[in-house]
Simulated scan of single mutants.
Amino acid sequence: MTEVDSNPFAPTLPPGRARALPWATVMAGSLVTIIPIVATVPIIPPFGLLMLLAWRLLARFALRPWAAAPLGFFDDLVSGQPLGSAVLLWSLCFIGIDLMERRLVFRDFRQDWLIASGAILFCLALGRILAVPVRAQVDAALLVQAAATICLFPAAARMVAWIDRKRGMA
């Protein structure tokens, strides 16, 4: 039994902070790209996208449907991608997930992971088309980055579930 389960009357976060926490975690995930890491092949996963997908799939009402656009704009400003690419791609991911939720009545974690994998591949592939010239040889690095991002989704989902439980919103 955890501390949260043992004391159901423990004070939770104020409503304003509880609503701002998903936004802050997605923005913090986007800020990971500014950490100076020296690598020969840039395979750092898009942590902002990971956190956004985890919040959308695990806590559906934590972020509004329009939240993907301003969060994508922030990610574009921080990551150096062409301005508007994450706005478009993250918004399309939200729309696609919403369409899938209308068809799938019940989901388990494996289906969430599959949906997130498709969204990650979609965003990375179209982001490559929007940001990099076609002749550039980055496909191998893109595949490694996609595999690393897909493998990190369960960790992001676990972190989001822990934060969602701590923030105390029903």
Rank of each mutant, 00 (worst) to 15 (best):
residue 71 L to R: 01
residue 77 L to I: 05
residue 97 I to S: 03
residue 72 G to C: 07
residue 68 A to G: 04
residue 87 V to L: 15
residue 77 L to S: 00
residue 85 S to K: 05
residue 64 R to P: 11
residue 79 S to F: 06
residue 98 D to M: 12
residue 76 D to Q: 03
residue 69 A to R: 07
residue 76 D to S: 02
residue 66 W to A: 14
residue 92 L to P: 00
residue 75 D to W: 13
residue 67 A to S: 08
residue 91 S to W: 05
residue 83 L to K: 04
residue 66 W to G: 13
residue 65 P to T: 06
residue 73 F to T: 06
residue 81 Q to F: 13
residue 93 C to A: 14
residue 83 L to I: 10
residue 81 Q to C: 11
residue 94 F to A: 13
residue 68 A to P: 05
residue 95 I to T: 15
residue 94 F to L: 15
residue 93 C to V: 14
residue 73 F to V: 11
residue 73 F to E: 00
residue 98 D to P: 02
residue 81 Q to N: 15
residue 86 A to Y: 12
residue 76 D to L: 07
residue 65 P to S: 10
residue 88 L to N: 09
residue 95 I to G: 13
residue 70 P to G: 04
residue 94 F to H: 13
residue 71 L to F: 02
residue 70 P to T: 08
residue 83 L to Q: 08
residue 92 L to N: 05
residue 91 S to P: 06
residue 75 D to S: 13
residue 91 S to G: 07
residue 79 S to G: 10
residue 96 G to W: 01
residue 86 A to K: 14
residue 70 P to D: 05
residue 93 C to M: 13
residue 88 L to R: 06
residue 71 L to V: 02
residue 82 P to I: 03
residue 96 G to N: 01
residue 76 D to F: 01
residue 90 W to N: 06
residue 89 L to E: 02
residue 83 L to T: 01
residue 66 W to D: 13
residue 97 I to N: 02
residue 75 D to C: 11
residue 84 G to D: 09
residue 83 L to D: 07
residue 64 R to K: 15
residue 74 F to L: 10
residue 80 G to T: 10
residue 97 I to L: 14
residue 66 W to M: 14
residue 77 L to V: 03
residue 75 D to K: 08
residue 67 A to L: 03
residue 90 W to Y: 14
residue 92 L to F: 05
residue 86 A to S: 14
residue 79 S to N: 07
residue 65 P to Q: 09
residue 89 L to C: 04
residue 94 F to M: 15
residue 88 L to A: 14
residue 83 L to P: 09
residue 73 F to R: 06
residue 97 I to F: 08
residue 80 G to M: 04
residue 91 S to N: 10
residue 80 G to A: 03
residue 64 R to H: 14
residue 94 F to T: 14
residue 94 F to P: 10
residue 74 F to C: 07
residue 97 I to M: 11
residue 68 A to M: 04
residue 70 P to S: 07
residue 93 C to S: 15
residue 86 A to C: 15
residue 75 D to Y: 11
residue 82 P to F: 08
residue 90 W to M: 04
residue 89 L to F: 04
residue 77 L to G: 10
residue 82 P to Y: 01
residue 80 G to K: 10
residue 88 L to Y: 08
residue 68 A to V: 05
residue 87 V to F: 12
residue 77 L to Q: 07
residue 73 F to I: 10
residue 65 P to R: 12
residue 65 P to I: 05
residue 79 S to E: 00
